[in-house]
Write a protein that binds this DNA or RNA. Structure first.
Lengths: 236, 236
DNA sequence: AAGTATAATTGTACCGGTACAATTTAACAA
DNA sequence: TTGTTAAATTGTACCGGTACAATTATACTT
């Protein structure tokens, strides 16, 4: 692991262990340099990472401060798809409905940048947080990149698997959000009524080289899904 | 304006002018150094900015490539609140319903980190994109930070005003998303029916020093609001 | 033609430095 | 006490460098 990542982790851990609150001041840059015995730019990179994650904010001439949002129940929009699971101590489980190899339809193929004759894995799950229905997920993986999946893998975190077992690293993703009404089928999976409100999120996950490898459609249970986004400044 | 910001702007402009597409390659780092006559680290910072904005992605050993999402109709979630208005050529207008000074209720006061005896500006607007109803907004500004507002300012971009006229710069913001049903009053503003689905977004905007100065509640018209988020990697 | 080793390309990590702008603290004056 | 000025603190911009890992292109082999 890179130095600046390691340091970022340690600082974040320190914040959590000490139960620091919004506005609490952290040691100054120079002290961190000495403490971790690295150059200023390495500390700066670590802090920049934490700033992007919404863990701290920096104020020139003043110091480095803890940043915290104050709504414990809310999930980070960027943590649902396996990214860092900062759900706190809540447990995420899954009912696997389908894992199969198939040919994609035109829409799926286009979103994945492949042809309709290329193979994809189709995964369908219902996901729960502490036993409550969170969402219904329909997800397509490019088989050329993710050559094998099964129900055990899919019941756990798919992203952990592709990353650790296949060495596939996620580069970036495009998320499309939309509010809509549930269809009858979706409502059944979520334990809701047809035409109930829902948040639909389509996401296209890309490798670091820009190639799409996962296209997923998630339908959220409106009563059990509250999200937080911690944004930074005019430039984000 | 800072060098790396200026360079980032020019590169982005270049991409738009040349109508480059996803995956198109940009000049290599060294050429950019020469072209802009700055050091490598300055170019790197500019590119990093663009990467965070979702404009490019970089691949070590390979090059710098254009990144684009392919859904023109979708708005960036970070551009709605005055941030960069990348709505393309679409026109954003507002109906101002209320601009007044008042005392905040307990909830508003808490979100703004002030007391219930401190003054706030209350702003209520309905916002339109190309004439179609986009959202209903109820927003509270700390009067100690934003001492004056009127209907003219509020009809335009409040954020442009506080930034240019008051020298107030936004540091970061916490956004809370939730899907719900419309109340009767909200439905009236949006031209919808009671209990229709909606996306509610509450946002707390902070200054660079971490002090909240704006708390806003926005209710989106579900049929006219489609959002895109371009996220970067596991760490964001 | 197809695989394999080798070299060139290219961005990233990390170092260490100077200058500076924003903030805070201290000293001072009214 | 209150406001003002000066000095110290502290993070950011920018420079220029070395080393290196990932990718791509080249040369070589089979």
């Amino acid at each position: 692991m890179l130095k600046y990542q390691q340091i970022a982790n340690e600082i974040e851990q320190y914040i959590n262990e000490q139960q620091l609150k919004q506005g609490d001041k952290l040691p100054v840059l120079e002290q961190m340099m000495n403490q971790y015995a690295v150059s200023k730019s390495t500390i700066t990179k670590a802090l920049e990472l934490l700033e992007r994650k919404g863990v701290i904010f920096q104020l020139r001439g003043s110091g480095i401060f803890v940043r915290r949002h104050n709504r414990p129940g809310y999930m980070s929009l960027f943590s649902t798809q396996g990214f860092k699971s900062n759900l706190g101590d809540r447990v995420l489980t899954s009912d696997v409905i389908d894992v199969s190899v198939m040919k994609p339809d035109a829409l799926v193929a286009e979103n994945l940048g492949i042809g309709v004759s290329d193979d994809v894995y189709r995964v369908e799950r219902v996901r729960y947080v502490d036993g409550e229905v969170l969402c219904h997920e329909e997800s397509y993986y490019v088989k050329a990149i993710v050559p094998y999946l099964n129900r055990e893998i899919v019941a756990d975190s798919i992203f952990d698997y592709v990353q650790s077992a296949l060495g596939v690293t996620i580069g970036f993703s495009d998320m499309y959000l939309q509010v809509d009404r549930l269809t009858e089928g979706e409502a059944g999976h979520l334990g809701l009524q047809e035409n109930d409100p829902t948040l639909r999120i389509e996401t296209i996950f890309h490798l670091t080289n820009g190639k799409p490898f996962d296209y997923s459609r998630i339908t959220y249970h409106y009563a059990h899904s509250q999200f937080v986004i911690q944004a930074n400044g005019p430039y984000m």
